[in-house]
Computed example of a mutant assay.
Amino acid sequence: MSRMFSRQTATEIEKAAQEFGLEPAALLAIAEIESAGQVFAKVEGRNEPLIRFEGHYFDRRLSGAARDRARAEGLASPNAGAVANPRAQAARWQLLDRAAAIDHQAAYESTSWGLGQVMGAHWQWLGFNDVDALVTEARSGAAGQARLMARYLDKAGLTGALNGHDWEAVGHGYNGPGFRKNGYHLKLSEAYTRQFDGPAPGDRTMTVGSRGELVTELQEALVALGYPMDTDGIYGPGTATAVKRFQADHGLAADGIAGERTQAAIASALPFSGSGMWSKLKVWFAGLVGRA
């Protein structure tokens, strides 16, 4: 199983791979690199796909008064990177909403969506009726995000390279000509190997710097137990503080590291009523600890 995704998300990615004739482990590898294991962001209580708004794309799609307004509001620029994306996904969605108030289609086309960070501008090329149909797919859940990523790889003619493990070709086709600068092809190769080797000993321990869907589930479990924090999938100081508080309250060494004993204690403390999110989390944590 992926060390970043839950079993359910990994299964959805594998199904999308099979639908498009892609090797499941290879698609999981790209999904890990593109998303750092984070599938959703909480936006006003909703699970939404991760997005990135590109102000230079937006600028190209506007003209006249609309472009002037967007530039004046700091939403558009002819220069790539001039419009900064906030770190928090909720703030990015607010940025997108402001852009959509000027031109809905242009704003959604200027945004990359979901696990594979597929640009909305590709909607027609990818066979959607309009950009809203592409966005609906991305917002439909992990399965929709995975299908969108697989559809892009298929349409871009990268199936052979992906299934043949030609990571340089995949890196060039998916990440762009500058893929070597950030070692994209090397990261892909390492992520692919992990799908078979599994996490190294201790990899299921979560600590400051850990990221991904499993961190989100840890955060949601702690929130359910009365330890508030952001459920953003990033194990930062706030999460470490909450873990320390939980550990101190349950007679554990308060080191802020969610190792096997801490995860087992969280599983034991979670309420179980036979249904509901927290019951599912209890089952998940118990299974995680059992596999460690």
Rank of each mutant, 00 (worst) to 15 (best):
R60P: 05
R60D: 08
R61W: 08
L62K: 13
A65Y: 01
R69G: 09
R69N: 12
A70W: 04
R71E: 15
R71V: 15
A72P: 05
A72D: 10
G74S: 08
A76Y: 03
P78M: 09
N79T: 14
N79S: 08
A80K: 13
G81C: 14
G81V: 02
A82M: 06
N85K: 09
N85W: 09
N85A: 05
P86H: 10
R87N: 13
Q89V: 13
A91G: 12
A91H: 14
R92K: 14
L95N: 04
D97A: 15
R98A: 03
R98G: 02
A99C: 08
A99I: 05
A100D: 03
I102E: 01
D103E: 13
A106I: 11
Y108E: 14
Y108F: 15
Y108T: 02
Y108H: 08
T111L: 03
S112V: 11
S112Q: 05
G114Y: 01
L115A: 03
G116D: 05
G116M: 09
Q117A: 15
V118E: 07
V118W: 01
V118L: 06
V118K: 00
M119E: 06
M119A: 09
G120M: 04
G120H: 00
A121M: 13
A121V: 12
H122P: 01
H122R: 14
H122K: 11
Q124A: 15
Q124R: 15
W125F: 06
G127N: 00
G127E: 00
G127T: 01
F128Q: 00
F128P: 10
N129P: 11
N129H: 15
D130M: 03
V131R: 07
V135C: 13
T136I: 03
E137I: 10
R139E: 15
S140I: 04
G141W: 00
A142W: 07
A142D: 06
A143F: 11
A143K: 07
G144W: 10
A146S: 15
A146V: 11
A146L: 08
R147V: 00
L148A: 00
M149V: 06
M149Y: 09
A150V: 04
A150T: 05
D154K: 14
K155A: 07
G157M: 11
G157E: 13
L158M: 01
